[in-house]
Design a protein around this nucleic acid. Structure first.
Length: 589
RNA sequence: GGGCCGGUAGCUCAGUUUGGCAGAGCGUCUGGCUUUUAACCAGACGGUCGCGUGUUCAAAUCGCGCCCGGCCCGCCA
């Protein structure tokens, strides 16, 4: 627990040579020639000073340079991966999109690239998630599924646990499926690999055998990073699955590589603050009936899949990455991939947390914005922490619209901005179309106040957002944003969350003068007038009757939206069918 | 406590490698759109670049020290 007993080890393992950002690895020299180029172990790829390389407008080009420097075999393999432990949120999409942009850049440079994603689904379930979700992305409380069945499976691999929703082969498959759907939704071609499948098919068997053959070295290497692993202890880097209770076990009592088996005893497993009890069974397992501990499994995946580049969250940067390099080089004898640390996102200022309900899935996001806007979000500098703000999603969409307009040369922009747009936009949008139409997001939200598609289009035209000669397709695409902005207004209950109350008249209480004024306004509307005339008449009517301007508008918003405020009233009323407006102003229905 | 990453306008972010006048969008304010009610247009306001210090003709940018936030240094992934 305390670092004291291991102080010397610890120092060697985790403190970098002065000034260099080299964490751990083998106890190399302290003086790496001067500064740069030698430091291949730092995962902070984008921060690396590397005078010899050109400065690119897009970070993925910097990464691609590094990948090319390795002179990789083709196809170049780019990996990402997570454990399908529960609701996959937007932060997990980093594992897909960050790699995707690097893959695209390399493809552009003429390389053949395969992007793979490992579902680390042989990992054991270590705790009960409070919230799950179905394949449609609807959040479901643990209590609504068979929690007992899940509880009995604590400690078992995700792929051995029945799907609580009953729709997939296993718990692991269920959440892997959602991740696959997410990748498809943002249009990223990526090959999904089940880690369980890698074990069962034997693709990891030789590597597992190698690790066990060299378990003394493996133990020595890992002991530099993990206190529980004693340099001269009994640690065996393999966790069999108990044939009796199905749980991942941690106590291997004997290794027989001739037979390709290990002997084990099913003992208790620490999982956070609780203990998952082992059944005590003693048995024999093959090298396919278990898993490597993560610190070995990750490098083993690199070897099995031939990984050249992998992005990972900052939680790995000072932990499993340094040990991963060490394992790769000194246990497996392979070159680790080019790394890249990405910072974490927050959601509306708070960390992602499925237990606290602070999650958003890709499917949720795509109800609010177009896929290209989401893809754009992931082009931003990975080394900076960022907030994905649903509340202020309009800012992100505005930013994207500007990014797009800069690309088409429609607005003035700085050199940096232009260079970024020119480089990145074609990677974000599949088929660039100069004639696309983008309704400003908040304007789209205003249009969302009415359900009538024809009315939406008409207002958009009148306000000059749709050119005369626009194609039907372009208009349809543009109006798609109205639904999204409408969903956004509803979800956030923001100032655009007005809804024309057609079906029933809202409760209201006006004084006599206001009622008379409303009658007159009804008469005026009934005569048939244009939007500006109605707007003007609202002012005139209020003045004539000496009704306070604010409260008169307020009366209108009350009648039509059941709100204090709303969109510009005259033009809006002019567009809604006259019969209804007149009746509503007379408070007849 | 140690290592690492980050901190730029009210908000969202560029700019930091390669030192050269502090930038954009949104918001706000003012004005325009014939006359207070959120869509459109124009303009303005807005920053000790986390703090201090060093180097330099010149520092958001480079060095050193500190502050704040996050991650790792147990386990697990």
């Amino acid at each position: 627990m305390s670092p004291e007993p291991n102080a010397p080890d610890d120092t060697e393992a985790s403190s970098a040579p002065d000034g260099a950002d080299e964490p751990a690895a083998t106890a190399e020299t302290t003086e790496l020639d001067a500064d740069e180029t030698t430091d291949s172990s730092s995962p902070y790829t984008l921060q690396r000073e590397d005078g010899s390389e050109t400065h690119h407008a897009f970070w993925a080009d910097d990464v691609a340079d590094r990948v090319e420097d390795r002179d990789p075999d083709e196809p170049i393999v780019i990996k990402g991966g997570i454990s399908p432990s529960g609701v996959p949120h937007l932060g997990n999409v980093n594992e897909i999109m960050r790699g995707y942009f690097v893959a695209e850049v390399l493809r552009e440079r003429g390389h053949e690239v395969t992007q793979v994603f490992t579902a680390d689904d042989r990992d054991p379930l270590r705790g009960l998630p409070r919230t799950l979700c179905d394949l449609e992305g609807n959040l479901v409380d643990l209590g609504e599924v068979n929690a007992g069945a899940l509880g009995r499976n604590l400690g078992s691999p995700y792929t051995d646990i029945p799907d609580p929703f009953g729709c997939c082969e296993s718990y692991g498959d269920h959440f892997s499926q959602i991740i696959e759907d997410s990748a498809a939704a943002v249009d990223v071609p990526i090959e999904f690999v089940s880690t369980t499948e890698l074990y069962e098919s034997g693709d990891l068997e030789e590597i597992t055998r190698h690790v066990l053959e060299n378990r003394d070295t493996a133990r020595e290497v890992l002991s530099k990073y993990q206190d529980k692993v004693e340099e001269n202890g009994e640690y065996v880097p393999f966790n069999p699955i108990c044939e009796e209770c199905g749980k991942i076990t941690e106590t291997v009592t004997d290794v027989d590589l001739e037979a390709g088996t290990v002997e084990y005893r099913c003992t208790d497993m620490d999982a956070g603050d609780q203990t998952i009890e082992g059944c005590g069974h003693e048995g024999t397992a093959t090298l396919r009936d278990g898993k490597l501990p993560w610190r070995f499994e990750w490098p083993a995946q690199w070897q099995a899949l031939g990984v050249d580049f992998e992005p990972f969250g900052k939680d790995h940067a000072e932990g499993s990455w340094p040990s991963g390099i060490d394992v790769a080089e000194n246990v497996l004898g392979i070159e680790p991939p080019v790394p890249m640390v990405y910072e974490w996102f927050t959601l509306d200022g708070e960390p992602f947390s499925s237990s606290a309900g602070n999650v958003i899935l890709v499917s949720d996001v795509l109800e609010l914005i177009e896929p290209e806007v989401l893809r754009y979000f992931f082009t931003k500098d990975p080394s900076k922490a960022r907030d994905f703000s649903v509340e202020r999603l309009d800012l992100l969409v505005d930013e994207f619209d500007r990014f797009e307009a800069v690309y088409y040369g429609e607005v003035e922009a700085s050199e940096d901005e232009r260079a970024f747009a020119e480089r990145v936009y074609p990677l974000v949008v599949d088929e660039p179309d100069e004639d696309r139409i983008r309704l400003p997001y908040t304007f789209a939200a205003v249009l969302g106040m009415t359900d009538d598609p024809a009315l939406r289009e008409e207002i958009a035209r009148r306000e000059g957002h749709i050119p005369e000669n626009a194609s039907e397709q372009a208009i349809e695409d543009a109006l798609g944003r109205v639904e999204q902005a409408r969903n956004w207004a509803r979800r956030t209950e923001n100032e655009f969350d007005y809804e024309l109350k057609r079906e029933a008249i809202p409760d209201h209480d006006f004084d006599a003068t206001t009622e008379i004024a409303l009658e007159e306004l009804a008469d005026f509307v009934e005569e048939g007038h244009g939007p500006d005339e109605i707007q003007e008449e609202i002012y005139e009517t209020a003045k004539r009757h000496d009704v306070d301007m604010g409260s008169f508008f307020g009366a209108g918003y009350r009648l039509f939206f059941d709100e204090e405020q709303g969109p510009k009233l005259g033009p809006f009323l002019a567009k809604v069918d006259r019969e209804f407006v007149v009746a509503r102003l007379r408070r007849e229905r």
